[in-house]
Design a protein around this nucleic acid. Structure first.
Length: 595
RNA sequence: GCCUCAGUAGCUCAGCGGUAGAGCACUUCAUUGGUAAUGAAGAGGUCACGGGUUCGAUUCCCGUCUGAGGCUCCA
């Protein structure tokens, strides 16, 4: 079994690098208040309150100071002390980096150490050749490496603001991000990997491949889909619709806005208000809102007829475009837009169907992820945070719902982690989390169990006993959103989508003008007889130029058409991955090659 | 919303107190080409926007907008 990162030498090294950073900060910026500095997935950070704002151009000097301090070969030593002694140390202004002026956060951290737990400090010190004393002492659980000289390969990456203890109400500290590795080679490789990831950034590829664009004249976070991106969406929608039809889903279509009263009933106008676009009040004094979710509309459709227990489950599906007023700093290209389309559906089920229906949804999600070629995902069960009051509904229903999710995951052999506080405000959920090229987590598919909206909207079905009963709702979106999924897939494949997804599957390249007519005939055949998405590149350019351009557009196949081919009744086939495949007939091409 | 950074031609970027430059893309001309860029010419910019400093601002300062990386929040 592999060693856990938390137990590794690298983890200790990065933790010590964070201390080294803090030591450099205290020497260069007296009065800086230290808070916390942990190792993280790809490096470390330290959160610090500076007397003057720190700027990015200050980082090289800090890095140089760190190098100098590292070379001093300061021994890093642990000591355990009593709570009283810890307090005294933190307030001892004779120690560099300590003293009452800079103790604010360290004292709070000390108070947060649970009673009975050991309190430890890590100390590193050395007098340099000029006789200057260097010392750094930090309240810290550890562990660390033995000496600062082990910290050789590191780099300070960036500066960011971060709220003390992650709470917006607190002061914002300056977070310095850095990374460290055991060797210079590993550090270089990591930096190279980041560069590579930037090259496959979905925003860059999205423009280069003609998938989507943004215009400030349209508005923040509102993508415009270009022909090739729109084709990609349609292909994904077709695929999902077929999967859903096989599973008994029924299509519905609902408007983009509706009467706010609906959302009063659902609870959105209260719980979700700051995420909604400004309300629209018309002459009749009716208020309309742009829908941030599709649920209330689907609920109205459910309510439109009297439902029997025999009718359930009712599964209403819609590609529903919703609008959420994300804070300006939160929009992120297509991954986090203000208008986006959910592959949404709402399932109205009897209590005895809940686990089975949830299981079928998990099955659908697994099928979708597998078809899209997404293997590296995590499943996360978001449960209620017992300390928060943002949730609605009864505790016993929350428990029933949460248990149903666990049961369904176990039935489908889906490994999951539990994340308290990640539930929706109306119920617990199962989320699929996938990393992008830069290693950032994105929530993709989601399934949510909801006892609350059926209650608020007084949903009913007539049971076997001819009495009304209350259904349970399942909200689910296997992609999560089309926008985010396309962004993720673009990075995943670096723009080279699998054949079935490629906006243009086959490019036909006539060599000279006199081949254009045949090229267009071929185009029509491939489109109408075989259903392929094709393009003819009849620009007056050389073949080499056309090949290069279509290769950069990541078109899976190019068909080259010249005198030789027309005479022989063949085409020259070139594959995106394998290059020139030689001449073949159309039948050969369709049968054995294109896929 | 907050912290840091950035905004020069459609795209990628250089320049930096004396009113702008390259490559690609675009247009025109020549070339009709066999597996990753044919050659030449031309056209393109209120240097994001608004103020200020200055004889003079794309360049320095302030504000706004937009984008990026984080934080908070989320599909």
């Amino acid at each position: 079994m592999a060693e856990r990162y938390e137990d590794s030498y690298l983890y200790r090294l990065r933790h010590s690098a964070a201390h080294l950073l803090a030591q450099a900060v205290t020497e260069l910026y007296p009065g800086a208040k230290l808070s916390i500095g942990p190792p993280i997935e790809n490096g470390f950070y330290y959160d610090i309150e500076f007397p003057e704002p720190l700027r990015e151009e200050d980082l090289p000097a800090l890095e140089a100071k760190m190098k100098e301090l590292a070379k001093l070969d300061q021994r890093i030593e642990r000591s355990e002390v009593s709570r009283e002694d810890a307090r005294a140390l933190i307030l001892d202004s004779s120690i560099p980096c300590m003293g009452s002026e800079v103790a604010e956060y360290k004292l709070q951290l000390l108070d947060a150490v649970p009673e009975g737990e050991k309190i430890s400090f890590y100390n590193q010190q050395r007098t340099d050749r000029e006789g200057v004393q260097h010392r750094f002492l930090d309240l810290c659980r550890g562990p660390h490496v033995d000496s600062t000289k082990e910290i050789k390969a590191f780099k300070l990456m960036s500066i960011a603001g971060a709220y003390w203890r992650g709470d917006v109400k607190n002061k914002q500290l300056t977070r310095i991000y850095g990374t460290a590795f055991e060797t210079k080679e590993e550090l270089e490789a990591h930096l190279e990997m980041i560069e590579e990831a930037k090259r496959r950034d979905h925003r860059i590829l999205g423009r280069e491949l003609g998938l989507f664009m943004f215009s400030p004249r349209v508005g923040v976070g509102l993508p415009l889909w270009l022909p090739k991106g729109a084709q990609l969406r349609m292909t994904m929608i077709d695929f999902l619709n077929k999967e859903q039809m096989r599973r008994g889903y029924l299509p519905v279509v609902t408007p983009h806005l509706g009467n706010a009263k609906l959302w009063d009933v659902s609870g959105h106008t209260i719980a979700y208000k700051d995420k909604m676009f400004p309300f629209m009040v018309d002459d009749e004094k009716e208020t309309f809102i742009l829908k941030p979710m599709n649920c209330p509309f689907h609920i109205e459709i459910y309510r439109s007829s009297l439902r029997s227990y025999r009718d359930l489950p009712v599964r209403l599906a819609e590609m529903g475009t919703v609008y959420r007023y994300e804070q300006s700093g939160e929009v992120a290209g297509i991954m986090r837009a203000r208008g986006f389309t959910q592959d949404d559906a709402h399932l109205f089920v009897r209590p005895d169907q809940l686990v089975e229906e949830f299981t079928l949804v998990v099955d659908l999600i697994q099928a979708v992820l597998s078809k899209l070629g997404l293997q590296n995902f995590r499943a996360r069960v978001g449960t209620k945070d017992p300390n928060s009051d943002k949730y609605i509904g009864h505790d016993e229903n929350w428990e029933l719902a949460t248990n149903a999710i666990f049961e369904a995951c176990q039935a489908k052999g889906l490994d999951y982690e539990v994340s308290p506080g990640d539930a929706a405000f109306y119920g617990p959920k199962l989320d699929i989390v996938i990393k992008d090229a830069l290693g950032r987590d994105w929530q993709m598919g989601t399934v949510q169990v909801d006892y609350n909206l059926p209650e608020r909207f007084e949903l009913e079905y007539i049971g076997e006993d001819s009495k009304p009963h209350r259904p349970i709702m399942i909200h689910r979106a296997p992609f999560g959103s089309l926008e985010r999924m396309i962004g993720l897939l673009t990075e995943q494949y670096a723009g080279a989508f699998p054949f079935w997804l490629s906006p243009v599957q086959i490019a036909i390249l006539p060599i000279a003008d006199r081949h254009n007519e045949k090229a267009h005939e071929l185009f029509v055949r491939l489109r109408d007889e075989f259903g392929y998405r094709c393009e003819v590149d009849d620009r007056r350019e050389t073949l080499g130029k056309k090949i290069r351009d279509n290769q950069m557009q990541k078109v899976p196949y190019m068909l080259i058409l010249g005198d030789k081919d027309i005479e022989a009744g063949t085409v020259g086939v070139r594959s995106r991955e394998e290059g020139d495949l030689g001449a073949m007939s159309l039948e050969e091409l369709v049968k054995s090659t294109v896929s």
